[in-house]
């Protein structure tokens, strides 16, 4: 079934992916866009207090998720990883439960939106503390190596701003010293809230930092899911085979404000954003698949209808769920009955 060469129409360098996989990536990207917009809509409607979008990151995340081995690999995500969460198996209902902070959210409405947890799928629980989770990702990779579980790797993601943090540096350094099975995927969207990359680091590419750790550093086009897949697949395969860590930098862009609490008009021009919108990875990938004859216009339309329906259904279903009870505030502080004073 897998077609490894462009069979029809315009040539598509498909990175070894089958039609089915290419369509799955497109579907993931369309669903991301839909769910992202839904979060912002719900916020404008006053139904949820906060949302944070990953528009502009769809291609990176669809590509990286395709390289991720479900059931073996572990994802240590950051808060802008909607597409990765979906791509490794989380459902729109889980995403919406998190946005609505309902009882059906795995954290039972404790966590901020986009701070997922799903141990069964290998999605690690994170805090909002930038780069704090990178050390945990390394700990998991160290456990894989210690137990001799070859063929397993950790995918640790951050933005480029996070690479200024000491904990990012410490994580990469430790993983390098111990040759751990981990890939550090840096989604470089050029902005850390209002701080541009050149105020964050002196080097042109985050990947340029890699030689300082004795690691390979690879830059890829984060607006292309296939290019990202190819690089991520290679990096994860290296990790699976005991070849150690890789830093992958996917160049993308943040189309929206940092979050619903941010107004990016205070620090960047509309023109700059419009310029990048012309390269919007979602319609571009759809077009590429049509031109290559992988899908036709009708299928493209159906996919869009599908993800809209799925998003609507998940929205209604999640909104209908109850909030967690006030009493649940007191549970799971530590194992068992929690009391700082023992009788």
């Amino acid at each position: 079934m897998a077609k490894t060469t462009a069979a029809r129409g315009r040539d598509l360098d498909r990175g070894g992916l089958s039609d089915e996989q290419l369509v799955a990536m497109l579907r993931n990207m369309l669903l991301q866009r839909q769910l992202d917009n839904r979060g912002f809509q719900l916020n404008r409607q006053g139904k949820i207090p906060f949302a944070l979008g990953s528009e502009g990151h769809e291609a990176v995340q669809a590509g990286a998720a395709m390289a991720f081995e479900r059931g073996r690999d572990v994802l240590a995500p950051y808060y802008r990883d909607l597409g990765l969460a979906l791509g490794v198996g989380m459902s729109p209902f889980e995403i919406l439960s998190s946005l609505f902070a309902r009882q059906t959210d795995r954290s039972m409405g404790r966590q901020f939106p986009n701070h997922y947890t799903n141990h069964d799928l290998g999605v690690m629980s994170i805090s909002s503390i930038i780069a704090g989770h990178c050390t945990h990702a390394v700990g998991v990779a160290a456990a894989f190596k210690y137990r001799g579980e070859s063929g397993r790797a950790v995918l640790c993601t951050t933005g480029e701003g996070a690479t200024s943090q000491g904990e990012w540096h410490e994580s990469v350094n430790y993983a390098a010293v111990h040759g751990l099975p981990i890939v550090f995927l840096v989604q470089n969207n050029e902005w850390a809230i209002s701080t541009p990359q050149d105020m964050q680091m002196k080097v042109a590419n985050v990947a340029d930092k890699a030689p300082g750790y004795g690691l390979p550093g690879v830059v890829c086009d984060g607006f292309s899911p296939i290019a990202t897949y190819r690089v991520m697949h290679e990096a994860l395969e290296r990790a699976h085979a005991g070849g150690g860590p890789t830093i992958v930098e996917a160049k993308c862009y943040r189309f929206l404000s940092h979050s619903t609490d941010d107004d990016d008009r205070t620090y960047r021009s509309r023109d700059a954003i419009e310029e990048r919108r012309k390269l919007d990875p979602v319609p571009r990938f759809e077009q590429a698949l049509i031109e290559a004859g992988v899908i036709d216009e009708a299928l493209a339309k159906r996919l869009k209808q599908d993800v809209l329906r799925e998003t609507n259904e998940a929205t209604d279903a999640a909104e209908a769920q109850p909030y967690p009870t006030a009493e649940s505030l007191y549970t799971n502080v530590v194992a068992g009955d929690y009391k700082p004073w023992q009788d």
């Binding site: 690690m124 945990h136 990702a137 390394v138 700990g139 430790y174």
Partner: peptide
């Protein structure tokens, strides 16, 4: 690097 001594141990414990 103390932050990562504890942080990496957290990851091991979570795993």
């Amino acid at each position: 690097a103390e932050a990562s001594i504890v942080g990496i141990a957290i990851g091991m414990a979570m795993e």
